[in-house]
């Protein structure tokens, strides 16, 4: 049963894990159960996807909303297991790229490849035709997404949020799904919140559960859509550290949209700078953040860092 004494439904728990440096100094344990300071979790022992991550290729992808062209003949490639961050001003099409990959938006033109398969098209008699629901269902098995607003299911407790997908979609047994959910909650530092209700958790805790829920589906591609934008400032670092550790410990192909440039630098092998639906500049984070070659990138970074 949910422990209403630990988390009043109306107010956010105040003792969320603070920044790691502070934890180290005080040696206390964060409210979300992360043992702070001492004995760091052996994260690579956790049940994370290993191997077989596909690459992603966009071929002349066009996405329009009415007369507004969001992506114009966009081409780019993400290598298997690569971690790519998309940065750029609002409306530059970054989030649309993730939403196309998660099939939350439909494709207008072009082709998207996940590994050697097309996401939005399938082969019928040697001809490339629009994908049907069955094809999309198969393709989605490889992809997971974490949302800005967490989007946990309020009609289920934390455990069922994590077991529902594996049981109903992957056909995993109840026992196995629960076992895996426990491991994942352990990984995100919320082992004690198994039976809690999403509304009893703070924003940071909800986002940790959402990360665990996405990982429970064993995706090979993980999409992070501004995952810390809705969090209180003091909770941001905890979630970012968790994601960086997960990224380091797995072979997952990662696409990340963020306005947190430190996080982008931390987590990615490569940064793509977007503007008006096209890539302005790309390169390793040291280059993009250190010595960007494009004026547009410099202006953007200056504006972001000044805010």
């Amino acid at each position: 049963m949910p422990q209403s004494d630990t988390a009043p439904e109306s107010s956010e728990p105040k003792d969320e894990a603070p920044a790691p440096s502070l934890e180290k100094a005080t040696g206390r344990t964060g409210a979300d159960g992360v043992p702070a300071g001492k004995d760091p979790k052996p994260i690579d022992a956790a049940p994370l996807p290993k191997g077989g991550a596909p690459g992603i290729t966009f071929e002349k992808v066009v996405k329009r909303f009415g007369s507004n062209v969001v992506l114009r003949e966009l081409d780019f490639t993400v290598a298997p297991g690569e971690r790519v961050t998309l940065i750029g001003p609002s409306g530059s099409g970054k989030t649309t790229i993730l939403r196309l990959l998660m099939t939350l938006e439909t494709l207008n033109e072009g082709v998207i490849w996940i590994g050697d398969q097309t996401l939005w098209h399938m082969d019928r008699g040697g001809k490339r035709v629009a994908a049907n629901q069955k094809h999309l269902h198969e393709m989605r098995k490889q992809v997971g997404m974490v949302f800005q607003q967490f989007n946990l299911f309020p009609n289920m407790n934390v455990l069922r949020n994590l077991t529902e997908g594996p049981r109903r979609v992957l056909g995993v047994s109840q026992d196995e799904a629960v076992e895996r959910a426990r491991e994942l909650l352990e990984l995100v530092g919320l082992a004690d919140k198994l039976n809690a209700h999403p509304t009893q958790l703070s924003g940071g805790q909800q986002q940790r559960v959402a990360v665990a829920r996405a990982l429970a589906m064993q995706p090979k591609v993980l999409l992070l859509d501004e995952v810390t934008s809705a969090l209180d400032p003091e909770l941001v670092v905890g979630v970012q550290d968790l994601l960086r550790d997960i990224a380091n410990a797995s072979d997952i192909t990662l696409l990340c949209v963020t306005h947190e440039m430190n996080f982008a630098r931390d987590i990615s092998n490569r940064v793509l700078m977007f503007d008006q639906g096209q890539i302005v500049e790309e390169g390793p984070p040291e280059q993009i953040f250190g010595e960007p070659s494009e004026q547009r990138t410099r202006d953007f970074l200056q504006a972001v860092l000044a805010s």
């Binding site: 998660m102 989605r140 997908g165 109903r168 589906m217």
Partner: peptide
Amino acid sequence: EATIALNLTP
């Protein structure tokens, strides 16, 4: 959208 991301059937 979360149900789609978890690949649930309609």
